[in-house]
Design a protein around this nucleic acid. Structure first.
Lengths: 234, 234
DNA sequence: TTTGCTTTTATGTATAGACATAATTGCAAA
DNA sequence: TTTGCAATTATGTCTATACATAAAAGCAAA
């Protein structure tokens, strides 16, 4: 059995993600959650404090806790989950699997992932759509040796990224951010001009040394930017 | 008097940022901090847990707590100092100041920096060149209220970024990364095709709350990328 | 030397209670 | 009606304690 702390957190996140608790919705008071889960207030408080620190909820003394209003800019590098982000921003989200196949990786992919060439991977191309506007094109490889159950997953309810994140939490990731000019095929899918500048985020993740997945996500440059806060480290 | 929790946090962050505790340095055990600050372990634990969630420190059972290796920071910091990067890569580096003036900032810049419109800033446009190929165009604002000596600096030996970093170490920074199509002027300076996708890194830095500088650095997308390692956010 | 066990230790999670603080609500006086 | 004070209430911070757990270290048997 999982830790209570995680269970409470998952429950609340799920309610917000599903839209059951829209932005502005009042979250049960600490003493209510405390009764519901049969735990101490400190436990509930730590969960809610963490969620507040992550910007998912807003807390005010006396007034209580509510689901946070759509925030303007999120650090895209931390965005793992389009559905959650969309819920947070208060927009309708859906996705479309454009293609799906199992292929042996080529030399370039082998180099990138550190796996032998010829390893079989599930290849998925997914379009992420918010408010009927294509927002990102995702090209993903999933290592079937690490995640064999992906082979049978239809990806009906959740897009590959969300599904994977729930199934295989990653411990290490490598990110590369590039600027690219959209080629014809990409421009058509994203409904942008051919040649338009796009941000391409390439992310490879590992779990305890085992390769999990590679995602190359392309965002139209006129609508997306990465935002981050950093502190200098010597 | 501030909350103890915040004081402990500030102390540790200061030690890490100043370099007094470099990456890998062991942080005092919870019971040591507990004795030092005369508080309970829970208080110390919450501080350290938060810092760990933010990626500043790494905790392992039994082994203790250490300052985290630079990860996400490196992505952006890596390309902060062109001279250093060039030396590391073994290429010849030089820079050229294209323009220099003192101007009152407009409304948009005021919005971005949080300063009143009309504040006087030193405006510099710098081209970074490696092996005789333009690699980046830097457009920089320096707050003369915070760094008055910049006014008299000729920027002969070091480009503005390097000079500033040595003079005014920053404590907070905001980064934005965009993909943009190069316009005519920019393409000419960088010797690339008009419309070519470029990475634009916008960085604003503060020192102890005082605004220091804003830099907008544009890199041709075919030659540059950001690389970073990240860990999942708790 | 290697393997397997036990101990030690530092962090992880959780509890029950206490007082502080900010903000709303309601009541009362001007 | 408006202003101002007091009560209420939900969150914020903190304590002291307890047991769980992962990992390193030490020890002993094969």
């Amino acid at each position: 059995m999982k830790h209570l702390h995680q269970r409470i957190r998952d429950d609340i996140e799920a309610k917000i993600m599903s839209g059951e608790w829209p932005p502005g919705h009042r979250i049960p008071f600490e003493h209510e959650l405390m009764a519901e889960y049969g735990c101490s207030r400190m436990t509930v408080n730590k969960v809610l404090s963490t969620l507040a620190a992550n910007g998912l909820i807003t807390r005010r003394r006396r007034a209580g806790t509510v689901v946070a209003e759509p925030s303007s800019q999120q650090a895209v590098l931390q965005i793992q989950d389009f559905a959650l982000e969309a819920a947070r921003a208060g927009v309708e989200y859906r996705f479309k699997i454009l293609s799906r196949s199992i292929e042996s990786i080529d030399a370039a992919a082998a180099q990138r992932t550190g796996l032998p060439a010829g390893t079989e991977m599930l290849c998925l191309s997914t379009l992420h759509i918010m408010d009927d506007v294509p927002q990102a094109l995702e090209q993903r490889l999933i290592d079937l040796a690490t995640v064999p159950e992906a082979d049978k997953e239809p990806f009906k309810d959740s897009p590959p990224g969300t599904w994977l994140l729930r199934r295989v939490p990653w411990t290490d990731a490598e990110h590369i951010v590039r600027a690219v000019n959209a080629d014809g095929a990409m421009a058509k899918k994203l409904q942008i001009q051919k040649g338009a500048a796009c941000l391409m985020l390439e992310r490879r993740t590992w779990q305890a040394g085992a390769f999990v997945t590679e995602a190359r996500i392309t965002y139209p440059g006129d609508r997306h930017q990465l935002v981050g806060r950093f502190s200098p480290v010597a």
